[in-house]
Structure formats: structure tokens, C-alpha cells
Design a protein around this nucleic acid. Structure first.
Lengths: 371, 371
DNA sequence: TCTCTTTACTTGAACGATCCAATCGTGCCA
DNA sequence: TGGCACGATTGGATCGTTCAAGTAAAGAGA
């Protein structure tokens, strides 16, 4: 608490006006070098930090990004994935001078109501949506309200999905990678343990496996034999692999749509090769080879897209992102030019003209004992 | 965004002054029934929500609770525990009109710096600390700054730990419960897989097992035989149980300090009874009996303690917690009287005079195939 | 010398809610 | 009917910041 040092205190100390202090912090180029130095010194001496509330009143920007925290996931094993993503968002946002505001909601309707509530009271500058699915009303709502947002996850089957930016990990590339690895180590009968049709993520991951096997000369009939669909879960995975092993020509390896299924497959698989998806802690613990999503980078990209939008929104002056806290010069957030995005890792960025960016990141295969 | 309806708009619509609107929202009892009704109607008609930024400027309260989000835990399996707790905090806080602000920090020093930063800019009203350990400087810092906070976790070994409120789960009671269950099902040689000495949580959980066996007539020498300490992790659990099985008089059951160790014990345990701790998703998945912490209630208690402090802080008027959003009458947060706390579940609340409350919740044993 | 720019800074106002002190009824009693 | 008390309502000030407009000084051009 201490004694709340305001911009007026700094101004008095440095023998300038409030506005000059404000200028030093927000548009330093309009202030003479010598004055700038003096004000900066005063800021440091008094330990001044700009009050976010007061700033928000004037500018309307809260420097808050809202994100939903999900309850322990359906299965739970995969819950940690979201946890790591949220951690990344928090870290990246902080680097750009934003903070993450949490909310919960049980279903889409409740979430829309929460949007409305938050926007009325705390007024976050942007939202990060996760777990996008078919018929997701949230994006449409936010688009209509003209609230900046990014989704982590592609707009599955939504026609206007191209209207907003998203970041996703190329699941098909991940399963393709896994399948190629198994082919390279001599396997021919490579099964797939997937979710029931109708899940965007699940169908995508299946396609990578199917494509790779087809390229290796496996015909559609055999592919159908090797393909197994089931609900997510460890026992389900065990049951599924048992079925695939009991077939006339049993599988010698399986690629799984999730670590949960893979754990089950590992338990009941009688030593066949198993590859999971998500590289959860459990995978690490039991030595399961798994496809790893670059969650930290996905989070960083989401935040970068948001800050681009937000700074573009208030594009009157070049928003040099000058942090009010003196002394902790943090690395510049990211090269804001769009072409630079592709350079920092394996990813594809799709941008046509003024339309929002769509970033597809490449996963990696983490090799362990199971394959 | 829409058109930003302010308190002045409501006043105009209801034919009263701004102050009257404010009174209706903040101290309704001073306004005549009929006027109150009219103002409330205006609020609803216009969809008015008080701007948090403006309110904060005047009152100094941000209605923000800061909490740290931890990276994927050391082991990872136990990470979801914190996740669920955080979810609970978010939910309970929302019910009392507060929101959760996330931050990250790699170590205690960084966390203190973040405290300072947050307090200078966003000014959260309170902090929730988790993962308390020996020599934890955070509580002392916050105490000195007179910032309200609660810890989830007892102040292990800290002398001034009684100066602030905390909530914790009685780990010893959990392992005692597990041990009694194993005794009741006929086991006599019940091992304990614990962490190396020096962990508050670990030592506490061990003590419940030791106490229960001692009460059952097991002598100290045999207890020492049955006690096994190791770092956390699945392979470590497997190795530990292998050692206990290779002993002259092998164990027939083990109680574990964590689900990670228990999973390992299950894998290498050759069918002996195993009980874990934390009831993680993995436990559910593989059918592991485990001690379950009431995380939702712990979170609710933490928030209740905080709101008590915060409302007591600004105790000039009875803060009836009248939400500005009309129409969604939420349940009263909780009976603020201290004796009421014990009534809502198995727990012990220690309060002496004006000293802060310390709440110890009872865990539960979730029975599954493994024991 | 006068005006017109430019530079570098200062001053006044506004954002939206709350708090304080003053005002306006209204009813009560002498 | 006047004085008074009481309670409901009002106007004005305030929080800390940024925006828009304004001023003083210095230099350029005629």
C-alpha cells in the first residue's frame, strides 16, 4: 500500500508538468532528451507505477486478457494440456504488459453470459478461446460485438471461421510423423485408435495416419480394418487394442489419438508398439512415445496475434509497448511483421491481404520406450 | 463495446440523481422503496453495469484476487490437483463478485517482484498462495505490506505462521484412513512409500500411516522396516515397491504419499494392494484407490476467508455484497460467523480471539480396484 | 521589426463512480 | 403558523491518467 505515488508527485519531483511525465512514459520521442532523463530518474526515485484503473478510465483499455479455466477434463489425463497452455498465455501476456483474467463457465450459454458480464465490468481487452468445436457460438458472438479474440483450435466446420485469427497444432502432421516412424522401424500393420467421427480434432489426427499409410501402399480395405473408433479413456484403449489384436491379421503397432487411449493400449497391448498424443505427464511417467504439441509457442503466438490486433486498434501512435515499470527492459514481444512469424519455428502462417492470420504449428514426436 | 451506459444515463432514465442510483446499488436501505424499484428497473432496462475501473479509482478496491499458475508440476501427475484448486478459486470468487488474476513466477524472489509489480499496477485486493514450504518468504512479505492473503497449505515450520489465515487438508488423516482400510481388509504388513524427510506435506502424510499402525500394535522396528523414502515419480515408485517386496517379510499392501508413486507401485507390485494420494485423473483411469482432497471446498474456504478480511477491512458500512448486476441473485457467500464453518463438512476450524482462522479439511478415501 | 513556424512544455477538461456537505420537502409539535 | 428535526435527494469535488488545446521562447524569412 505504502503511500500511492501518482504522476503528479513525479511531475513535482522532476519540476515538470503531469503531461510531460505522461509523455515520457507513453511517447518519449516528443520530449527533449535532458527532460526525459530527469523524469525517468524521478520515476525511479519515487518508484512510480501508473495506476491501471486510472489509465483504463481514460483510454478504455484494461490490459486484461480473459481466458477460461476448464474443470478437470472429461478424461483428466489430457487436462494438463490446457494447464500448460494457460501457463504459456500468462507468461507471454506478462511479457507484453498484459495480465490474464480467469473465468469459468459450464456450457456455451453460460460462457456467453460471462462474456457479457466481464465486458460490462472489468472490460478485458481480448479473449482467448480454447476447445473449439462444431457449432461453437462463442466466436460468432465475439465477432458481432467486435471484441478482439483468438482461438486455440481451428474453427471446425464453421463457414465464417476465416474471419478471425486462430492458432492450432497440425494434428495430422503429428500422427503422420508417428506413422512414418513406425513404418521406418519395420511395422506394416499399424492400427489407429481414434475417437468417434464428428470431432474436428479427432478426424484431423486420424487423417494424418490414413494419408501416410495410403502413401505407403496400404489399400482402403486394409485401412478400414486397422481403424478403430472408441470413446476416450484408458479402459476403452485397452478394449480397443484387444480387439485389434484379436483380428485375423493382428496389428503390430498402434497410433492413438490421445495419451489416455495409448495408456490403455500399452497396458493391454502385449508389448506392441504404441504412440500416444499430447505428451502428457503420464506418458513421460510410463515411457510412452507421444506426439508433443508446442504449447508454449502456441500460447506465445496467440498473445502475439492479440497484441497485434490491440495495438492496431489504437494505431494512432506507434505503440512501442513502453512498459511503465522502469528498469526491467523485457525483450521486444515479437517482430510484428507477419512474414517474420514463419521464421521462428516449424509452422505455416496463412495470411491473405487484410484477413486475420491463421497459424498452424508443427508438433514433434517424443521418443520413449513404447515405440 | 456498444454504447457504454453510465450511472448518469440510469439516473436520467429513472428521473433521479446519480447519487440516488449509487445508493440503490450500494446502500439500498437509505432509499425509499418506490424509488429503489424505479432505479432498479432503469438499471435493468439499460443494462447498466458499474465500471470497475471507475469504482476502483474512488474506492481503491479492484475486486481482483491474484493467484499463481504453476508450470507442469515436477512430476506432472499431481499438476492437475492445483488445476482443480484454481478452478475452485475462480468459481467461488466469481460468486462473491471477485475475479482471479493470474501470474507466474519461477522462484520465490521472482514471485516477490511480481507481487510488487501487481500491487503497483493492477492492485489486486488479495493473494492466494499455494505450495507453501519451509522458509517461505512470501507470507512474511505480504504480512509486512499488510496485503490480505490466504495460503492453501499450512505454514510449515514458520513461527509466525499463526498470524495469517490458512486452509489445508489433513494429510495425516488421509493416510490414517487408508491404513485403517487396509488393516480392516486383513493386511498386517502395510508399507509406506514417502518422500525424503524435510517436506512438510510428506512428513505429515507419513505420520498418519505411522500413528495408525502403532495403534494397531506394530512396533517401531517393524515400522522402520515398512517405511520407504524416495523421490517422487512413477519409476521411483516401482523401484521402491520392488525393494519392499524383496524384503525378508514382504509387504502385502502399500500406502503412498502420491499417485505417481502409487502408479509405479501398482505396475511393479505384483498384485499387492496399493493406495495413492490425491485422486488424480490417472488414479481414476487405472483403478487406483486414492485419498481425495476436497479441493473445491478448500478453494471455497480460501475465498470465504479472503472476503471476510476484505469486507472487514472496509467495514464502514455493512457490505451487503450487493452485486451490481441485477437479476442474478446468487446465494449468500457463506455464513460469516465462524462457528458456522464447522457445520458444512468434516473440518476443524481453529480460531482464538481475533487471530486469523485456520481450517483443516478432512480428505476422503475413494475406493477402486487396487485396494 | 513583424509575422509565421517549430519546439518543448503547461494547463484545463474529461473518463465514471463514490463520498461529502448542503438542500429540499415533509411531518410533527408547540 | 413558525420552528425544528428527520430523511430523501442533490450538486460538487475527487480519484489518476490521458487528450486537446494553449502558451512561451527561439529561429526563419521578408
Amino acid at each position: 500500500m505504502a503511500d500511492k505515488v501518482t504522476i503528479a508527485d513525479v511531475a513535482r519531483y522532476a519540476n515538470v508538468s503531469r503531461q510531460t511525465v505522461s509523455n515520457v512514459l507513453n511517447s518519449p520521442e516528443v520530449v527533449r532528451e535532458e527532460t526525459r532523463r530527469r523524469v525517468r530518474e524521478a520515476v525511479r526515485a519515487l518508484g512510480y507505477r501508473a495506476s491501471q484503473a486510472a489509465r483504463q478510465m481514460r483510454t478504455g483499455r484494461s490490459r486484461l486478457i480473459a481466458a477460461r479455466i476448464e474443470p478437470a477434463q472429461e478424461d483428466g489425463i489430457n487436462g494438463s494440456v490446457f494447464d500448460r497452455f494457460l501457463h504459456g498465455i500468462t507468461e507471454s501476456a506478462a511479457r507484453s504488459g498484459y495480465r490474464v483474467l480467469l473465468y469459468t463457465a459450464d456450457d456455451h450459454d453460460a460462457e456467453l453470459a460471462t462474456f457479457d458480464d466481464l465486458l460490462g465490468v472489468y472490460v478485458p481487452d481480448a479473449f482467448v478461446l480454447t476447445s473449439t468445436d462444431y457449432d461453437d457460438p462463442r466466436a460468432a458472438w465475439l465477432l458481432e460485438q467486435r471484441i478482439p479474440f483468438v482461438t486455440f483450435g481451428r474453427p471446425w466446420g464453421v463457414p465464417d471461421g476465416q474471419k478471425y485469427p486462430w492458432v492450432d497444432v497440425d494434428g495430422a502432421a503429428g500422427t503422420a510423423m508417428a506413422t512414418r516412424h513406425l513404418l521406418a522401424t519395420g511395422h506394416r500393420r499399424i492400427g489407429f485408435l481414434g475417437w468417434p467421427e464428428g470431432s474436428g480434432v479427432g478426424d484431423d489426427r486420424r487423417s494424418g495416419w490414413a494419408r501416410t499409410l495410403a502413401e505407403a501402399g496400404i489399400g482402403p480395405d486394409e485401412l478400414a480394418e486397422l481403424d478403430h473408433r472408441t470413446e476416450d479413456g484408458v479402459p476403452e484403449g485397452a478394449a480397443a487394442v484387444t480387439a485389434l489384436l484379436a483380428a485375423e491379421r493382428p496389428v503390430t503397432a498402434v497410433v492413438c489419438v490421445s495419451d489416455s487411449l495409448a495408456i490403455g493400449a500399452l497396458q493391454a497391448g502385449n508389448g506392441i508398439a504404441v504412440i500416444g498424443f499430447d505428451d502428457t505427464p503420464v506418458a513421460r511417467a510410463v515411457g510412452l512415445t507421444s506426439v508433443s504439441q508446442p504449447l508454449g509457442e502456441a500460447a506465445a503466438r496467440c498473445v502475439a496475434l492479440l497484441t497485434d490486433m490491440l495495438d492496431g486498434d489504437a494505431a494512432r501512435r506507434r505503440p512501442r509497448d513502453e512498459e511503465t515499470t522502469p528498469g526491467d527492459a523485457d525483450a521486444p514481444p515479437d517482430d510484428p511483421s507477419n512474414d517474420g512469424a514463419g521464421a521462428r519455428g516449424p509452422s505455416r502462417t496463412t495470411t491473405s491481404g487484410d484477413s486475420p492470420a491463421h497459424i498452424l504449428l508443427e508438433p514433434a514426436l517424443v521418443h520413449r520406450r513404447s515405440a
